[in-house]
Simulated assay, not measured.
Amino acid sequence: MQLKQTPSYTTIDEASKDVLELMSKFVDVNTFFVAKNDKQDVDIIQSFNRNEIVLESGFETLYRDSY
């Protein structure tokens, strides 16, 4: 029996791409994202868009303008 090594990440930025890719295999929606939100700004760390680009990685907006 061969054991798989669990990936090791040092930041959320590193882990988010793998997490979104895994989620996309189980949930059939176009867009997922991981964001930082401090109630003033929203920063999209990583996004996954299946067919149509709705939200890009690196997008930033004011918290009051997000929904």
Rank of each mutant, 00 (worst) to 15 (best):
T11F: 00
V29D: 02
I53T: 15
D13G: 13
V34Y: 08
I44H: 01
Y9Q: 09
K25C: 13
E14D: 13
T61I: 11
D43F: 11
V19A: 14
L22F: 12
F48R: 00
K36E: 09
Q40C: 06
V29W: 06
S8D: 08
L22N: 10
K17A: 14
N51C: 00
E21Y: 07
D28E: 10
D41C: 10
F33E: 10
S16L: 04
D38F: 02
Q5R: 15
E21F: 02
S66K: 03
E14R: 07
L3I: 15
Y9A: 05
F33P: 01
I12D: 13
I44S: 03
D41W: 11
V42F: 08
F32D: 04
L22H: 09
D38I: 02
Y9L: 01
I45D: 02
N30A: 04
L55N: 09
Q2Y: 09
M1V: 13
L62Q: 12
N37E: 01
Y63G: 10
Y67N: 05
V19I: 15
T6G: 07
K36Q: 08
K4L: 15
Y63T: 11
V42A: 10
A35N: 04
L22Q: 08
T6S: 15
K4V: 11
K36T: 04
K17P: 05
K25I: 08
Y9M: 07
Y67S: 05
T61P: 05
T11S: 06
P7G: 03
Q46N: 14
S57V: 12
K36D: 05
K17W: 09
V19W: 10
S66T: 03
I45R: 04
F59N: 14
Q5Y: 07
L22E: 14
M23L: 10
Q5E: 13
L22K: 15
N37D: 02
R64P: 02
K25L: 14
Y9N: 04
I12A: 09
V29I: 15
S57M: 08
I45C: 05
N30M: 00
I44R: 04
D65A: 08
I53C: 12
D28M: 07
T10C: 07
V34Q: 08
Y63C: 08
T61S: 09
N51V: 01
S8P: 01
K39M: 07
T10W: 06
Y63E: 07
T31G: 05
T61D: 14
V19E: 09
F48C: 01
K4G: 11
F26K: 04
F48V: 01
K4N: 15
D41V: 12
L20K: 12
L55C: 11
L55E: 08
D13K: 15
R64E: 07
F26L: 11
D13W: 09
N37T: 02
D38K: 00
V27T: 12
T61A: 14
K17G: 11
D43K: 15
Q5T: 11
F48Q: 00
N30C: 06
D38Q: 02
S47P: 00
N37A: 00
V27Q: 05
Q40Y: 12
S47V: 01
V34D: 05
D28C: 05
L62I: 03
R64H: 13
D13S: 11
I12Q: 05
V29M: 12
Q46G: 03
S8Q: 10
